[in-house]
Design a protein around this nucleic acid. Structure first.
Lengths: 241, 241
DNA sequence: TGATAGTCGATTGCATGCAAATTGTCGACA
DNA sequence: TGTCGACAATTTGCATGCAATCGACTATCA
């Protein structure tokens, strides 16, 4: 439970409590602060080298983001993601990104298309080099979805899709099983198909493909967890309580 | 700018900062704190009779809910809703409530149907008595949508659809124009049609109707605002800057 | 022996106080 | 006269300190 070098040193400019939010948020999503862990304010304060005042502001914000839960007079607890919760989130995300596709098809420019193609090209190359560490492989995928939301031009939508809770669900998704390779490859081709639809400004098709793309991921996750429950933890599942 | 009797006295139990959140949130949505207004912490603290510590926690939370904006070292400002923002929110809500319909169709019980029918009956009666004050007429509508989200069984979805920002957008919508009567009547029949589809467990139809229902509201809002911009404020528009 | 009430420690919740930053104003100078 | 710069008042940001509350341990009684 020792986190060194998380001394809230990201930006030297932003308000302290905002930096604390970032630090704790990253710690939760990365798994350094495991789900269900009870946190004491004074402990966190000393860990991050700040006083309790900005820390409490940060905790209130993180509670609203649903990364932690507050237990009145009992501190806070890192939220414990469940399969149902992640599945619910994916269901919502499918609908939201379908909107993004629909709108993006109307507003996309040739430059946008070129940028997205470059992203997918990089994604395809990285999948070939599967031996790379997982994090690097994920980033372009996230960028593809995020870029689409930006193109859509609905600021509220972009904001919703940028929520940390989805990053968290995503990490749950990926830590759930190791054999990502075949799913990554399929996902890549789904991305390509979506972009192809966007190129033809076929918003309806793009939205449909996107909805299926995300629903597909969710289905696979649910099926995988169900199987995992039968064969409980063959190797070491990194579910440190 | 005098708010009396908002002394944060709702519950005597909940943590103080939570009650402050409620109080400020209500003040913003009701319009007592108009959009764009700059708020000073000490002023708010004395207004609500609390110290700045819990107040600041509340402000951080309200910022995350996007009811206020923080200007570092310059205090906070009540968010100014724009037509585009409200339209964007309605677009998102249409998609989310369509999901709710789809899922509700699979899970709805006879009791649920009876409860929803009762709501719509009350709604229909209230529309006949248009002379009633506006707030009372709105509540059952909101309940219909909320109840549907509950039936859907997706907790994240329910949470999203319960956000204060949507209540705020709704108040913008209704303060935008006075002649609600014909729209209310149409909306009521749209609700009836949605429920009818749900009774037949036709999720696809219910979702479609719901999407149109909300898109319709949005379209009317946009058209109305456009007209209003031509004939600037015939009566006194309650846009107190 | 089991259950219950009381007490103590620890932790959160809130108030106060001081330092850092910003905004507005005033004055000097081109 | 207009603009730039410095200063001061105000406000936010953060740290510290005290009170309220919860949980656990112990002791007492049935």
């Amino acid at each position: 439970m020792q986190i060194v070098d998380n001394q809230v040193s990201e930006d030297g400019e932003a308000p302290l409590s905002d930096r604390i939010v970032r630090a704790i948020s990253d710690a939760i999503i990365s798994g350094d602060l495991p789900g269900g862990a009870r946190l004491r304010e004074s402990e966190l304060a000393s860990r991050f080298g700040v006083s309790r005042a900005p820390l409490r502001e940060a905790l209130r914000l993180l509670e609203e983001r649903r990364l932690i839960e507050r237990l009145p007079y009992s501190g806070v607890r890192v939220i414990q993601l469940t399969l149902k919760m992640v599945a619910d989130l994916y269901e919502i995300r499918a609908a939201l990104e379908a909107i993004a596709c629909q709108r993006a098809a109307q507003r996309i420019t040739p430059d946008d298309i070129a940028a997205l193609e470059a992203m997918l090209a990089a994604e395809g190359e990285q999948i070939d080099g599967i031996e790379r560490d997982r994090q690097r492989r994920l980033s372009p995928i996230r960028d593809f979805h995020t870029r689409l939301a930006e193109i859509a031009g609905n600021d509220e939508l972009l904001r919703l899709l940028s929520r940390d809770l989805w990053r968290h669900a995503r990490s749950y998704y990926h830590s759930a099983w190791k054999t990502l390779s075949e799913r990554s490859r399929a996902a890549h081709f789904e991305h390509v198909a979506i972009l192809e639809a966007l190129k033809h400004r076929d918003g309806e098709l793009a939205a449909l493909l996107m909805r299926r793309h995300i629903d597909h991921s969710r289905t696979i996750l649910e099926r995988h967890i169900a199987e995992q429950d039968k064969n409980p933890a063959p190797a070491g599942a990194e579910k440190s309580e």
